[in-house]
């Protein structure tokens, strides 16, 4: 069951407002870097190291801005990382309570099936490659749909508008080309 756009949009707006009222604006894509850092540091403990006044890393990206990402890698129990884990909990419970996603939808959306058939390998490959460029692009941009588009435009940030212009300028033509059948 999907909420109406009015109820759903209002609820979503309230969550973004509560976040900035109580803590800070919502953002997600940085946590992909933090999880990468945690896994990498687990394999090679020399990647993130403690210094006199904080943390640093052999990786220039983790070490940037005074090692703030390195610090989060060293301390996974921080606000932003727990936030994303809690998001999964919230979405999982919500999905369970609405009787979840149908068996057919679990592997691919109907819109995909209507346009490209029901080959699972093809869908998984595109989802994987999609994830790759989404996160590469989000890290290049310094944020994603949550941090730049929603939180950014809500704060009248110029960067949010630039990001949204780029994202929709690419996403709409891509979807028009890929999804000609409505399913």
């Amino acid at each position: 069951m999907t909420l109406s756009w009015k109820t759903g949009g209002l609820a979503l707006g309230l969550v973004f407002f509560l976040a900035v009222l109580l803590v800070k604006p919502i953002g997600v894509s940085t946590q992909f870097v933090i999880l990468d850092g945690i896994l990498w540091d687990g394999l090679n403990p020399e990647v993130v190291t403690q210094t006199d006044d904080g943390y640093t890393s052999t990786n220039a990206y983790l070490a940037k801005s005074g090692g703030k990402y390195a610090k989060s890698v060293a301390n996974p129990m921080n606000y932003s990382f727990i936030f994303v884990l809690a998001m999964m909990l919230g979405a999982g419970v919500s999905s369970y309570l609405r009787k979840g996603v149908s068996a057919e939808e679990r592997t691919m959306p109907n819109l995909w099936r209507a346009n490209f058939g029901d080959g699972v390998t093809k869908r998984y490959l595109v989802a994987f490659l999609g994830g790759f460029i989404v996160l590469y692009g989000a890290r290049l941009a310094g944020g994603c749909t949550s941090g730049h588009m929603m939180s950014g435009m809500m704060q009248t940030a110029l960067s949010g508008y630039i990001f949204a212009a780029g994202a929709f300028a690419a996403a709409i033509p891509t979807a028009l080309i890929l999804f000609k059948s409505e399913g």
Partner: peptide, 18 residues
């Protein structure tokens, strides 16, 4: 540039990071 990249992957996969 990052927004353009994200846009292509977002449309193709139907997902953004969050």
């Amino acid at each position: 540039i990052g927004g353009l990249m994200l846009g292509v992957g977002w449309a193709a996969s139907g997902f953004c990071p969050g």
